[in-house]
C-alpha cells in the first residue's frame, strides 16, 4: 500500500510537468519543468523497486543531460525575447503550480526517508548487487558498446564544435590587419 502512496502523486506530477514542457513558451521554464518531470519519474522508479535507477535518473538525466540543454539555451540566448514579454521575474501566479508540484515531490521524498518501516518499496525489488552482477556478467558486451557510443558522441560533439568555430577564425584572420 505504501508504494502506491508514493506512485500516484509522483505519476501525476510527472504527467503535469511533462505537459507543461510541451506547453510553455519560455525554454528556460521548459527545462526546469523537465527536471521536475524527471524527478517525478525517479520517484516512480523508487516505488517500482529500483532505488539505484532512481538515483541514476536524478544524477545523470536531471544533473547532466538537462543541464546541457540549459547551457545551450543560455548560450544561444533564445529566451531573451520571451523574457522581455513577461518581465524577468516570474509573477506570483506563475509560481503557484511549480511550487505546489515541488512540495508534493519533497513531501514524498521525506516520506520515503523517514518511513517507520525500512524502505523496501516493492515485493519484487531487485537488489543493486544483483543488478551489478548481471550488468558486468551477462551484459558486459553492452557495457563495452555503451562506452563506444559515449566515445562516438564525444568525438561528434568535438567535430561539430570545431566545424562551427572554423569559419569564424578564418573570417577573423581575413579581417585581421597583416
Amino acid at each position: 500500500m505504501n508504494n502506491l502512496l508514493i506512485f500516484y502523486p509522483a505519476a501525476v506530477v510527472a504527467v503535469i510537468t511533462t505537459l507543461m514542457v510541451i506547453l510553455t513558451r519560455n525554454p528556460v521554464y521548459a527545462v526546469i519543468y523537465l527536471i521536475l518531470s524527471l524527478c517525478g519519474v525517479a520517484l516512480v522508479f523508487f516505488s517500482l523497486g529500483a532505488p539505484f535507477l532512481a538515483a541514476l535518473e536524478v544524477i545523470v538525466y536531471a544533473g547532466a543531460i538537462i543541464v546541457l540543454f540549459l547551457f545551450v539555451v543560455m548560450m544561444l540566448n533564445i529566451g531573451r525575447v520571451m523574457n522581455e514579454q513577461d518581465c524577468l521575474r516570474p509573477s506570483r501566479k506563475q509560481m503557484i503550480l511549480p511550487g505546489f508540484l515541488v512540495i508534493v515531490l519533497l513531501v514524498e521524498t521525506l516520506m520515503c526517508l523517514f518511513a517507520a518501516a525500512p524502505v523496501n518499496p516493492a515485493a519484487s525489488s531487485i537488489s543493486t548487487k544483483a543488478l551489478g552482477q548481471a550488468l558486468y556478467g551477462k551484459h558486459y558486451l553492452g557495457v563495452l558498446l555503451s562506452a563506444l557510443v559515449l566515445l562516438i558522441g564525444a568525438i561528434g560533439g568535438i567535430h561539430l564544435g570545431r566545424a562551427s568555430s572554423c569559419p569564424d577564425t578564418k573570417e577573423r584572420s581575413i579581417h585581421a590587419p597583416r
Binding site: A50, F52, L53, L56, V60, Y61, A64, I65, L68, F69, V72, M75, L76, I126, L131, A134, L135, H139, G142, L145, S146, A147, V149, L150, I152, G153, A154, G156, G157, L160, G161, S164
Partner: peptide, 23 residues
C-alpha cells in the same frame, strides 16, 4: 533495469550531438 542503464549513454550522446547541431 540494465537496459535503462544502456539507454542513459545513448540519450547523453544523442543530446550532445543534437545540441551541437542546433548550435
Amino acid at each position: 533495469q540494465i537496459f535503462f542503464i544502456f539507454i542513459l549513454p545513448v540519450a547523453a550522446a544523442e543530446v550532445a550531438i543534437g545540441l551541437a547541431l542546433a548550435v
